[in-house]
Design a protein around this nucleic acid. Structure first.
Lengths: 209, 209
DNA sequence: TCGGAAAACCAACACTTGTCGGTTAGGTAG
DNA sequence: CTACCTAACCGACAAGTGTTGGTTTTCCGA
């Protein structure tokens, strides 16, 4: 094949450079204007590479955007490994993982706002959603394996709750970014956590503050 | 300032014709191929109108898609007016509105699959999400007004639960359409309903079948 | 160190996109 | 019925897109 084809760490030095240049250029541009207004020529010039070189690595801007936010998404995903929607105690603290989730979201607000909004990319949206979905998937499976005391684990399949939770998180995040986010990450984590664990707000008034 | 700007029912007969022609053309094309592959020229030719006429009404394919699926979305939205995520009794039947929701979804599966998937349109996705969000919003407000027996209505704001529910529904729907949907609309409604009302699957084993 | 392999550059290509004046055809108000 | 109004058509335009073949530069391994 193409000789050495390491996926992540190694590889040709040149490709890594142009990859980094292009992704960095897009991230910078996306902080200033909407994704839909960014042309391939803009990204190439900002990155300092020839326009045709762009097409040697990505098919279009969407694909670049997907790759560019992968690293950020990775940390975002890893911030919520301990999400346990089913078996969690209702009086648990507002789940540090959720706080980290929203803090990470706020840190790259400009990026996510441009990518997830109406002018964003359906490819990126779907990518993020499926990533969260997979992450929640394994978490549910882990919890089910950790407490295999009943047949209910096979009764309720994994995929629907995972899709439910992933969509809910993405929905809350998107909505939070769309408005001028009057709430802090902590508040968002608290509210979202109450919704995740149960939909009875009258029961959940513990308010450890 | 194009003088008369009637929005929905009346207006010039010619405009309605071309609107219908373009929207119908897009819907037909979108059933066959992914939205991202459809060009303005394709739609115009399929609709039997000149290409420049397209731009007299819509800025790009995404905007047309948003307008084209509005009617379908309206019925989709109106199918879930009775959604009560907070106060519903946990042993209630699987919410006819949810069944209608998934049936409507299945009926236009090709359309939604192409629009919501990775090759879809972020504008359409955001549009649908915000529509569902607004619908759930008023529902929550209605229920809160129907049972104003505590201060908890002001304690928990409306927007976050609405965004949560909207995202969750859209997530479940998208995930269901992406796979080859082995489940029936009834099953999906049942599963989603259990998730909406509570996250404790061990409690929810009523199984009216 | 050096030679081959492959990435990056370059010019140019057909094609699509979005926009613009001017013309034709159709509908609506009077 | 008629005259005005305006949507729809037409040709042409600059700009952006995606691809191609060929050249130069850079890197990796022997």
């Amino acid at each position: 094949m193409t000789t050495s084809r390491r996926n992540a760490p190694a590889g040709d030095r040149r490709v890594r450079r142009t990859h980094a240049a292009l992704q960095g250029a897009l991230i910078k541009l996306v902080e200033e204007q909407d994704l839909g207004q960014i042309s391939v020529a803009d990204v190439a010039e900002q990155a300092g590479v020839n326009r045709t070189t762009f097409y040697d690595h990505y098919r279009d801007v969407h694909e670049l955007a997907e790759a560019a936010c992968t690293a950020t998404i990775d940390t975002l995903i890893e911030s919520l490994p301990a999400l346990d929607p089913a078996l969690a105690a209702p009086d648990a603290e507002p789940a540090r993982s959720l706080v980290a989730f929203f803090e990470n979201l706020a840190e790259h607000a400009g990026l996510y706002r441009s990518l997830l909004g109406p002018q964003g990319s359906a490819r990126v949206i779907d990518h993020i959603r499926s990533r969260i979905c997979a992450s929640v998937h394994v978490t549910v499976r882990l919890n089910a394996g950790a407490a295999p005391d009943s047949v209910s684990t096979t009764d309720i399949p994994h995929d629907v709750p995972a899709a439910f939770t992933a969509g809910a998180l993405l929905g809350v995040a998107t909505d939070w970014l769309q408005r001028d986010s009057p709430r802090t990450p902590n508040e968002m984590a608290e509210l979202t956590w109450q919704l995740l664990v149960t939909h009875h707000p009258t029961d959940a008034r513990h308010a450890t503050t």
